[in-house]
Design a protein around this nucleic acid. Structure first.
Length: 858
RNA sequence: GCCCGCUUGGCGGAAUUGGUAGACGCAACGGACUUAAAAUCCGUUGUCCGAAAGGGCGUGCCGGUUCGAGUCCGGCAGCGGGCACCA
């Protein structure tokens, strides 16, 4: 560019700052309850203030902003708030590593990230900003905790944690690496502590049923939650033990296979296991080994299936005189069912593997339909499908369902078994032995037990003067904080030093956004108007825990009378991750994209020392692999609109997005192309609408109006990448229109105006700027969404594909909705069709109006 | 291990309910403009055969349903998410 002209490069820095301050001054995105207007609540999962925003945030908040701005243009009163999920472990880790107070670290991060988010130009109501680590927020949480306690939604019981015996601290699962503590490297033990639990299992059935009505949730998330809740209909059955006073209660969902039972297995945590271990040193060792596996389900499931033969024998409940051995087995979970099972190896793969390992009998009792009962045997693959029962006394000849029914009736009659509905879902353990969380407002009195902190003394604030020099819970170590008098008897007592799981804060923040400064946890008028969230957007990694806990918490709040709805999120969208190539030197050192450049030969080398760099496959951007691109760098170089546009282009929002420098550069070129296109055509006079347009201009106008319809549908359906493609096509078409005639100029103006409106939600700063350059004095943010002219959208002719036996041979142009006879005649007259049909007899012709015509020959 | 997804050109992807596979973008190549470069504009680009016209093959792999399958069904492989104390 030789001189600065009207068509010089778009100055995004100036323009973006200008519009951001105009939006802020006018407060146009700050909203109040307005009974006259329909509301729309858009929410992205709020960020953890880790330090700087990352590309995942940019993608998430761009999508939410598109929805917010689009719905606003559609006339909704749009609530679009932002806040901080501010409690959590990283703040404590920073405290230990950098000797900075978790609160200071968190608030500084929030300030940094807030300023970064502001540069994105998001249509947010910042007046509602909240941070969960603020006493104003967690006081409400403490009130609700006490209310939950009153309503018996909270209880305390012993439960195991990962214990680091060297650091004397509880470890999170992610802090346990291959069974060792991440800092100490010591083998982690499982230790039992008294911990607080929410009774989420009281709502198992409701949480499952509720999924059916969540029509605007992805089916896969509903399926995942369904499986997580894991409802199963089965039986609890009592087994007498030979030479032992206790009975053993097992749970099974395959009671039809009871005659195939060849062993019983109990959890290492089962009371009977503990009982037996007292007189059995080997069993004690075995149980300890099981406990060294850690607390995660994945670790237990992946571990080799092992058992310990207790020597006890269980009496078969339906076969007189038959006994089967009782094992302690590492794969039986105390948390599920009764912590005891019977094994039927022929019809359960895990039982079969176990039976082969310990030489137990395998008795087939369900015969596949195509097998001979006389010689059907199970080898290494269990038969788990339906069939007729055999070797099963009164069940012989029955199918699976009938056999279950018959067994259930007999066992219930004998009063040694009950039909039971069982859930996989376990109660939610909310105790954390950490500082940076919401204090649990309880006082433990040696005489009175657990006593709630009186409401007048809330909030129970975290002490500021804490010591992170030693590992473990600083609250517990604090010289004075926990020592209080019992509110009931006045004698010396101690505060609960556990804090709440940070999932608790994120289980109701969406309600608090509706009334962020309310004295009560929530304000009923605000709840009534704003809730539920109409569109919730966040990562698929939250498909189960966060979303299920929020659904539970909402029901618990309902039970306590805070609200009168049960589902918090009417619509859910789960976005994909942002990925980037990985770079590694031959020494195995990871490099950031900015530390890599290409050499003359086109291969990559380190900027620093020229060492050869290998390109790895694209993976989720992560600090550990250094494949991160800092959003602030991108916004500095290209502006927020370019970053937003790139986030929306190409990749479908629910899939992973591949970050490429060339793709961003492409978006930047497009931004400038729009800028020039409008600049070159903005000054034309606005003439009255011409009476007639020629065919080409009619086609352009048709495309303009079809694009309105298409983009509208795409935004409604979260197909942002398709909306982007349509806008590219529209701009390509508009670029081809000359500005010579009045008609051309009029069509161009119409097209540009609509194009600017359509990009408004996606590139808001550029759109506002172009909108004003087109001569408008209003803010585009206040402009209604364009409406398509239906008459213009419809076309008169369609292209029909002509197939011969399913193979495309020609395409023909026919009038819209042409009758079959004319279509057939036109198709059969096509030379290519004639050639393909030569010497053949036509058997039938399939005609799908406006789509295809398929000629089928013999 | 269990549950849930995903797989289409060199790359990201498009293809309303089964109906013209590859829109749009990126990259690459060729050309225009320029003293030159950048920027911009125009063109080509799934693959194989062919000078061309045209034709064969093609949506991870194997099989099925159908006049017709990227789309539906069965099986397999690879990759990713979750697995209850990361958020």
């Amino acid at each position: 560019m030789t001189s600065e002209t009207a068509t010089s490069r778009y100055n995004f820095k100036e323009t973006e700052a200008k519009w951001q301050s105009l939006w802020e001054e006018s407060g146009c995105f700050n909203v109040e309850i307005d009974p006259e207007k329909p509301k729309y609540y858009v929410l992205e999962m709020f960020p953890y203030p880790s330090g700087r925003i990352h590309m995942g945030h940019v993608r998430n908040y761009t999508m939410g902003d598109v929805v917010a701005r689009y719905k606003r243009a559609q006339g909704f009163n749009v609530l679009h708030p932002m806040g901080w999920d501010a409690f959590g472990m990283p703040a404590e880790n920073a405290a230990m590593e950098q000797r900075v107070h978790p609160g200071k670290w968190t608030y500084e991060n929030i300030a940094m990230m807030r300023s970064q988010l502001r540069k994105m130009g998001l249509a947010l109501d910042w007046s509602r900003e909240l941070a969960t680590c603020h006493p104003g927020y967690y006081e409400s949480e403490q009130r609700m905790f006490l209310k939950f306690l009153e309503q018996d939604l909270v209880y305390r019981r012993r439960s195991s944690v990962n214990w680091d015996p060297v650091d004397n601290t509880v470890l999170a699962n992610e802090q346990v690496i291959d069974g060792l503590g991440w800092r100490s490297g010591a083998p982690v033990e499982r230790r039992e502590l008294d911990q607080w639990f929410f009774r989420i299992t009281d709502f198992s059935e409701e949480l499952l049923e509720g999924l059916k009505n969540l029509e605007r949730w992805p089916a896969k998330v509903r399926t995942m939650q369904e499986n997580w809740i894991g409802r199963s209909e089965g039986m609890k059955v009592w087994f007498e033990l030979e030479g032992h006073d206790d009975r053993l209660q097992i749970f099974t969902t395959r009671h039809d296979t009871i005659f195939g039972a060849t062993f019983c297995a109990i959890s290492p945590d089962h009371p009977l296991s503990k009982d037996l271990a007292q007189n059995d040193a080997d069993l004690t060792t075995f149980i300890e080994e099981c406990r060294s596996l850690g607390t995660t389900e994945a670790a237990l499931e992946k571990a080799e299936k092992r058992g310990y033969k207790t020597g006890l024998r269980a009496k078969h409940p339906l076969t007189e005189g038959k006994t089967i051995p009782v094992f302690v087995a590492n794969f039986v979970l105390m948390e599920y069912g009764t912590g005891a099972i019977y094994g039927c190896p022929a019809h359960d793969q895990r039982d079969l593997d176990f039976a082969r390992k310990y030489n137990l009998d395998v008795i087939p009792v369900v015969i596949p339909p195509d097998a001979d009962p006389a010689d059907f045997a199970v080898d290494d693959v269990a038969y788990t499908d339906d069939g007729l029962h055999a070797n099963s006394d009164f069940l012989d000849g029955l199918g699976l369902a009938d056999a279950k029914e018959a067994v259930a009736n007999v066992l219930e009659e004998k009063e040694i078994g009950n039909r039971e509905i069982n859930f996989r879902l376990r109660d939610w353990g909310v105790s954390r032995q950490r500082y940076w969380g919401c204090p649990i407002p309880i006082i433990n009195c040696p005489d009175c037990g657990t006593i709630p902190v009186p409401e007048s003394e809330l909030p129970v604030c975290l002490p500021d003067d804490i010591d992170f020099e030693k590992p473990g819970n600083p609250l517990d170590r604090h010289p004075t904080w926990k020592f209080v008098d019992c509110p009931k008897c006045g004698s010396a007592a101690e505060r609960e030093t556990d804090t709440l799981d940070t999932f608790v804060e994120s289980s109701w923040y969406f309600s608090r956004f509706c009334c962020p400064r309310s004295e009560d946890p929530v304000d009923s008028e605000a709840m009534e108007y704003w809730m539920p969230v109409d569109q919730y957007i966040g990562g698929i990694e939250h498909a189960i825990l966060h979303l299920l806990y929020s659904r539970f918490f909402t029901r618990a709040m309902q039970k306590c009378g805070y609200i009168d709805f049960d589902e918090p999120f009417a619509g859910l969208f789960t976005q994909g991750m942002v990925c980037h190539e990985t770079y590694r030197t031959d020494d195995g050192e990871w490099l950031m994209p900015t530390q890599v450049e290409s050499d003359d030969g086109g291969s990559l080398k380190s900027v620093e020392n020229g060492a050869a760099v290998q390109v790895g496959r694209s993976e989720k951007m992560s600090k550990s692999k250094k494949n991160v691109v800092d959003p602030e760098d991108i916004i500095e170089t290209y502006g927020a609109d370019t970053a937003r546009w790139f986030m929306l282009s190409d990749s479908p929002p629910d899939r992973d997005l591949e970050w490429t420098d060339s793709g961003v550069a492409g978006s930047w070129r497009f931004v400038n192309r729009l800028w020039r296109l409008v600049a070159e055509n903005a000054d034309q006079e606005r003439a009255a609408e011409p009476e007639k347009f020629d065919k080409e201009l009619r086609a352009v106008r048709q495309q303009v109006h079809q694009t309105i319809g298409g983009v509208t549908d795409d935004l409604e359906g979260f197909h942002f990448n398709r909306a982007v493609a349509r806008i590219y096509e529209l701009v390509n078409a508009l670029s081809g229109v000359g500005a010579g005639t009045t008609e051309e100029r009029w069509v161009l103006r119409e097209g540009l105006k609509i194009m600017v409106q359509l990009i408004g939600p996606m590139m808001p700063h550029l759109a506002e700027e172009l909108w004003s350059r087109l001569g408008n004095t209003t803010s585009l943010a206040d402009e209604p969404w364009p409406k398509a002219d239906k008459d213009l959208m419809a076309s008169e002719t369609v292209t029909l594909a002509v197939q011969v036996r399913g193979k495309l041979r020609a395409t023909i142009e026919v009038p819209h909705d042409v009758d079959q006879e004319s279509a057939e005649a036109a198709a059969l007259a096509e030379p290519a069709v004639v050639a393909a049909l030569e010497g053949k007899t036509v058997n039938r012709i399939i005609y799908v109006p406006n789509k295809i015509i398929n000629v089928v020959h013999g």
